[in-house]
Design a protein around this nucleic acid. Structure first.
Lengths: 217, 217
DNA sequence: TAGATTGTTAATCGATTAACAATC
DNA sequence: TAGATTGTTAATCGATTAACAATC
């Protein structure tokens, strides 16, 4: 009934369910059947039911699913029912953009520190948080409980910094550097990658092969 | 021998192969076998050979793969052998961060315009490009050939703007808004999503269920 | 109760891995 | 030539879809 042995594909779909349910909730929809939801999301009803039943029976025969209840349950499954403290390593454009992204805080991801190695940035404020130097990190991690470290630094220093983070107790890394940290860090460290250039390459691939794609439709 | 009927999973792996081959190239490695590469990438040699053979026989029995050749071939498959012109819609923190990301240009993604609706931003320069107002977009798209539009705007206006883009000839959208544009746009429009909050939720999921995960190891 | 819709088992489909003949 | 390694077919595994009995 919990997160053991759930396939990656299922986990990837959970946030999407959560998003659709949140919208239904906003629109005042009280209940929904897997069939109706499947039409909106363009997936099979069977998949929705299978996915949800990995975590428990949230529906009711003859009724469907209560939107608010299911929304909350998925939120709980995703760990959005409590606050996650976060730091950002790398106060470049991307790091600052993430720090300024209000929506994360609404979802319970609270940024409590920003670090960089560029002395010119020292003390600069980003959304009310002063940028600190990387060598202040160990002391900071002793003082504050931090769950997630966001890595927005160039690839070349990413491994070294990640190892420093892990040595100081960080358990999860949101990694924007183009390196497979999961292959170099201990296996119990959680790494979630956002590789923007790989995303752009997939787009480029689809653009380049658009003619063939068309044929299939 | 080309991009027809290639599965999404394969396409997702191509940029990763490209990255590893690029690193091998930098390190002066001339040739590599699927077996050696599989050890570095932590995938099966069989998968590497199967993936590559979707596009052609790039190797040689008894020798393996020539690194430079394979690197170039994958680059060509991904469409990185020619320049893609790009515009950014939404000059907020994220849009500006992307505009400032030098690496894209090195890969052939050339940003030639930035648009926003905030009149305060009009004329502001980002990496040498002046921010234009959204109502200047149709004229701009008549004048310049633009392949990709990057959408870094709030979800609420994303659909409308995307439809405007499509109406003016845009064929591919790099979408950072939390909406499934592919479901509302014509099916020949290419949409590549980067949903940061969904990535963060997956991280949160793995963090929340870390104990169970441990057990499996 | 009758109708609707879930939860769950069984069938199908597709992707990954293994095996090996072809060949450099 | 002998050894190495690919390209490709066959076997396995896992994920998706279909079907339906259970039940609200």
């Amino acid at each position: 009934m919990d997160g053991k042995g759930i396939s990656k594909a299922v986990i990837t779909r959970l946030p999407r369910y959560y998003r659709y349910l949140g919208e239904l909730l906003e629109n005042g929809v009280e209940r929904i059947s897997s069939n109706d939801l499947s039409k909106q999301m363009k997936v099979t009803a069977s998949q929705i039911r299978q996915d949800l039943n990995n975590f428990g029976g949230f529906g009711q025969q003859g009724y469907g699913y209560n939107v608010r209840f299911l929304y909350n349950e998925i939120g709980r499954i995703l760990g959005l029912d409590h606050v996650h403290s976060m730091i950002i390593i790398g106060a470049g454009h991307l790091g600052q953009a993430l720090a300024n992204y209000v929506k994360f805080e609404k979802r319970g991801f609270k940024i409590i520190g920003i670090f960089d190695i560029n002395p010119n940035l020292k003390g600069s404020m980003v959304r009310g948080i002063g940028i600190q130097m990387l060598d202040e990190l160990p002391k900071f991690l002793e003082e504050y409980t931090v769950e997630i470290a966001t890595l927005t630094i160039p690839k070349d220093s990413a491994r070294e910094v990640a190892e420093l983070l892990v040595a100081n107790g960080i358990k999860a890394i949101w990694n924007f550097a183009h390196i497979d940290l999961n292959l170099v860090l201990p296996s119990d460290i959680i790494v979630e990658n956002v590789h923007l250039s790989e995303s752009l390459m997939r787009l480029s691939y689809n653009l380049t092969h658009a003619e063939n794609k068309q044929k299939k439709m």
